[in-house]
């Protein structure tokens, strides 16, 4: 066990320990912060494995972007800041058994399969130079496809997050006239008009009664969470 292995083992212990805290802590925000530690230690592990560029991309994307996005999600869903008791499901012990079985199988396979395999660590194998040449020479087609995928996910996230576009909402049958902009406030009053019948009105209410007009939904969003995605 030489120096590299010791360093990697320590970083691996930090990674797995922080990951354990992520899945067991009772505070949501702390889970995201433990995730930072886990990803950071894993980036250190990449550095030990001479994959420098992957390590910095890991720091930039995961620690810089993904965790911040997760924290935004935690805030926008109004999660409790302190401890919350019901973060774990009822089938927690079954999940623990499944995870332990998975770990046992995977670790056994890895140790039996690669127990005596050594790998050479040579500096420079994962530098930005090498990886850039690899990406833009050999793997340029997957790279372009991936940029299209990123664009698609960007558009998808915007479409999912906006409230004034999307699929046509369910309208009440027989009432096709829509009020103009600004009529949204007077609209719920009209749903209890005695002409339409109380039973039918209550049945169709969740789909259509509160249809937001274009101007009505904008000011009701507390905190502006329509831009969250």
């Amino acid at each position: 066990m030489n120096g590299k292995e010791i360093v990697f083992a320590l970083l691996g212990v930090v990674t797995v320990g922080a990951g354990f805290m992520v899945v067991t802590t009772r505070q949501l925000v702390h889970a995201a912060l433990w995730l930072v530690l886990s990803f950071g230690a894993l980036a250190g592990g990449y550095l030990v494995l001479t994959a420098e560029f992957v390590a910095w991309v890991q720091v930039l994307i995961y620690v810089g972007a993904v965790v911040v996005l997760l924290l935004f999600g935690i805030m926008l869903t109004r999660a409790p800041i302190g401890e919350s008791a019901d973060l774990d499901s009822g089938n927690r012990w079954v999940a623990a058994a499944v995870a332990a079985a998975t770990a046992a199988v995977l670790v056994t396979v890895m140790v039996m399969g690669f127990g005596d395999t050594r790998m050479p660590l040579r500096a420079g194998g994962g530098s930005a130079d090498e990886l850039g040449a690899g990406v833009f020479r050999t793997w340029v087609l997957p790279f372009e496809v991936l940029s299209v995928l990123l664009l698609a996910s960007l558009v998808g996230a915007i479409v999912l997050s906006r409230t004034d576009i999307g699929a046509a909402p369910q309208r009440r049958p027989g009432r096709s006239a829509r009020p103009g902009p600004g009529g949204g406030a007077a609209r719920p009053r009209r749903t209890v008009r005695p002409g339409s019948g109380a039973g039918a009105d209550a049945g169709t209410r969740p789909g259509g009664a509160a249809r937001p007009e274009d101007g009505a939904g904008a000011e009701t969003g507390p905190g502006g969470d329509e831009e969250g995605g």
Binding site: N2, K4, E5, F8, A9, G12, T15, V16, G19, F20, V22, V23, L28, A31, S38, L42, G45, L49, L70, G73, I74, T77, A79, D86, L87, D88, S89, N91, R92, V94, A95, A96, V98, A99, A100, T102, A103, L106, V107, M110, V111, F114, G115, T117, R118, M119, L121
Partner: peptide
Amino acid sequence: MHLVYPTVVAALLFSLGVYGVLARRNAIL
């Protein structure tokens, strides 16, 4: 460096993720 170290760390991390997906209730977790 032995190949066992990174693969075992990866296996443990994966099973932690499995546990989290199955046991957590909050969708963000």
